[in-house]
Every structure is written in C-alpha cells, then in structure tokens.
Write a protein that binds this DNA or RNA. Structure first.
Lengths: 230, 230
DNA sequence: TGGTCTGACGTCACCGAT
DNA sequence: ATCGGTGACGTCAGACCA
C-alpha cells in the first residue's frame, strides 16, 4: 500500500496526544508547486482535520448532554402541573384552549408511539470499584448546587435532589462504600424498565404519579424519575 | 504493509454495501488452532463489527432525533401556557407553589447559562432520512475544547463510578426509603444510594465544597434521579 | 482556490454476557 | 474464549466560507 508513509505513521491507531501545536512551515497562501510541498500540505491538513474532528465530537457530545438535561428539566416542570385542570383555565393559556390541547395531544402521541428505546444493558461498568463523590458540574450555577444550600435550607419543604453518577478514574479501594453494589443497583434499575421509554410504567405498574424516563442510550443509562411523596 | 489483504480489501474507504449476510464457515465454539482459522475468525469479527458499528450509529442518530423532537414538543407545550399566572393557580399545581417555581427557575437558569443557541443551519444534505442535529453553540471555555485529558491516558483504562449530588435539600428522616424492593423501582434505586450518601454527608466525608475539575472528555454516563416531595 | 466543519465510515479497545 | 455493543479515534467526502 505504501501510503506515502511520510510521517503520518498512524494509520489506524489512537495516536493520543493530539497535535495541538504544529506550525506550518509553508507560506499560507501560495500554490504548492513541488511534490514535496503538496505532500506537506496534505499532511498538515490531515493533522488539522484530526483535531477538528475531535472538537466536533466533543461539541456533539455536549449537545447531547444539553438535550438530555433540557428534556429532564422540561419534564419536571410539566409534571409539576396538572395538565387536565390546566386545560380549563383559559386565563393561563397563552393561546386558545384548542391550541393547548393540540400541543398536549401531540406530545402525548409522540410519547406513546415513539419507541425510542434502546437496549437495556445499562452496563454497570466496573463491578467492584468505588463511589467517589465529587462535584462535577458544568451546567449548574454554583449557587444552585451549592452544598450549603442542601444542608441548611430547611426552610423549604420541597425537597428535590439529583444524583449523578459518572465515570472517572479509579481511586483507592479504601474509600469504597461497601454497602453499595453497583451491579445490583443497575440491575434493579434496569430490569423493571426492560421495555421502552417507560412512560407507561409511571402509569400503571409503579406507584408513581409522575414520570420515569429511562434513557437507554447513554452508557450506562440515564434515569430520571420524579415522585411525589405524600 | 501488506495487511494480510486476505479479503479485507477495505482499509480506509466507505465500502458501502454492508455485509449483512455472511456465514461463518467455522464451528462456533471451538478454539481456533490454525493460523488460518485465527485469521478467518479475525476477519469475520471485523465484518461483524463493521455492521454493529453501523447499527450503533443509526441507533444513536435516532435517539438524537428523538430527543430533539421531544424537546421541541415540550417547549411548544410550555409556550402555550402563561407560566407567571400559572404559578398563582395552586389548584393546577401538582405539588406546592414553591416546587413549581423551583422547577421553573431551574429550567430558566439552565436555559440562560447554557448558550442553547442552535444555529438551525438548514442542511442541504437532505437525504430524507438523515437528520442534521443542529450544532449547538455551547458556551464553553477554550480549555474545555482543548483535548486535555488525552494526556493522562495512563490511567484511563480503569474507571470507576463517581456519585454526585446537586441541587438537593434535606430529606426528612421519616421518609427514609426502606429496603430494596424489586417491585418498587424508586426504592430500589434510591435506597442503596441514599443511605450511604446521607451517611457520608453527615460524616462530612464528601468534599462537596471543593470543585474538582470537570472532565469534559469522558462521557459522564449519568444516572440522574429527581425526587420531589411535598 | 485555500480553509474549516461535520456526517459517515471502518477500526480498535474495552466491557459485560454467554 | 468468544461475541455483540459501543466509545473513541482517524480518515475521507462534501458542504460551506474566505
């Protein structure tokens, strides 16, 4: 194949260490004349493109994350109002009653017809490693997720918390929380939700008056549930 | 390079026509002995994997499409009610007024902090089934884009779960969730998590105050649960 | 023309399940 | 040990922009 193998020795492998700093030694706006110049241009372009691809993937990933969070928040909001009653309060409807009902029907229809469920593997990943709590968060205002606020804001009777589990590098075993078994946890989560986007689960089989939303796509899974306790 | 070029002639190119039908001529459960057998196994695996990758991509694409549509419908629905007025109609709120306002604030906060401007570039590439996911113009630091964690790849083969809690309030002791019951999804999920977590919070062993730098690189693989109680 | 960006592909590494 | 699924990567093709 020969592949020019000039200096692009990385035909198929990770080639970690993205060439974030490489300079073109060629004049930027000049027609390449020599075969060699052409080659160098080509190679530089490939390097740049490699980097661009990386950025593009990252952006896409963030976009996905954004969409998932947005859906989650929107559903939360939606679940905190009684839609049936709402339909009769004309004064809170922006448009007509019919417009509202139409939107609502469209959404419900979408939710019911749309399979959109993927396998329920929920790959529990790493059977024996540790829960290491740590504040990630890009998306939240510091004030919003301030650890203080969850400790001493007893003023509000509304309790809402979110847990996020995410993969990170391994940490020493000593800090493990022994009681929790990841596998069991995930199995417990995944198995009842074996079938599709579990909007109907909230409806009948489980004592939820709110929604559970299992996102089977993400590895391992994103589960959003809302429940009204007494 | 020579690359065995047995029958895998497609080193780098599209090679449309996914081999949907190929049969293994090798016994399925037998140790490969011959070099040739091993080679054939390898090649068949590569073909199968090529196909699997295709499916996986398709699935991901559909999921993205699903999320976009869902968000869109939810937003439609939301836009058809006057949220300000709604907050005062306690009879249509599922929970408390505060709960509703909290959800609303959370959503608005999210919307404002996230750029959330999709450029809605009408793709000319419409092949009638391809959906272009409107690249989000996410506001992020330049550092986020830089391929930082590519460097510390020495340890990235071992991952563990991290658990994070954000936007949370005090959970009443009386509502501490009982032991895991497979029929109760929420309990099954929450109790293994809630107990150690709460214990650790009480024991202040969770460094919620420090902000660990966000690993933007790895997929967060998120479990998110939201629980509301009145 | 030159550039970037992104969809799609094929490959590999890794994981869990079998 | 083998297999399927998937995250990540690098490459190419093609769009769009300078």
């Amino acid at each position: 194949m020969e592949m020019t193998d000039f200096e692009l020795t990385s035909n198929s492998q990770s080639n970690l260490a993205i060439p974030t700093n490489f300079k073109s030694t060629l004049p930027p706006r000049k027609r390449a004349k020599t075969k060699e110049e052409k080659e160098q241009r080509r190679i530089e372009r490939i390097l740049r493109n490699r980097r661009a691809a990386h950025q593009s993937r990252e952006k896409k990933r963030l976009h996905l994350q954004y969409l998932e969070r947005k859906c989650s928040l929107l559903e939360n909001l939606l679940n905190s109002v009684n839609l049936e009653k709402l339909a009769d309060h004309k004064d809170v409807l922006t448009y007509s009653h019919d417009a509202f009902v139409a939107s609502l029907d469209e959404y419900r229809d979408f939710q019911s017809t749309r399979g959109a469920s993927l396998d329920t593997r929920a790959s529990s990943h790493s059977s024996s490693d540790t829960f290491t709590p740590s504040p990630l968060n890009c998306t939240m205002e510091p004030a919003t997720l301030s650890p203080k606020s969850m400790r001493d804001s007893a003023s509000d009777q509304e309790t809402s918390w979110e847990l996020q589990m995410f993969k990170t590098e391994n940490v020493p075993e000593s800090t493990t929380l022994p009681a929790v078994d990841n596998n069991n946890l995930f199995d417990a989560v995944a198995s009842p939700l074996a079938d599709p986007l579990c909007d109907d689960i909230a409806g009948n089989s489980l004592p939820f008056d709110n929604s559970i939303d299992l996102d089977n796509w993400r590895n391992p899974a994103v589960i959003t549930m809302t429940r009204k306790l007494q």
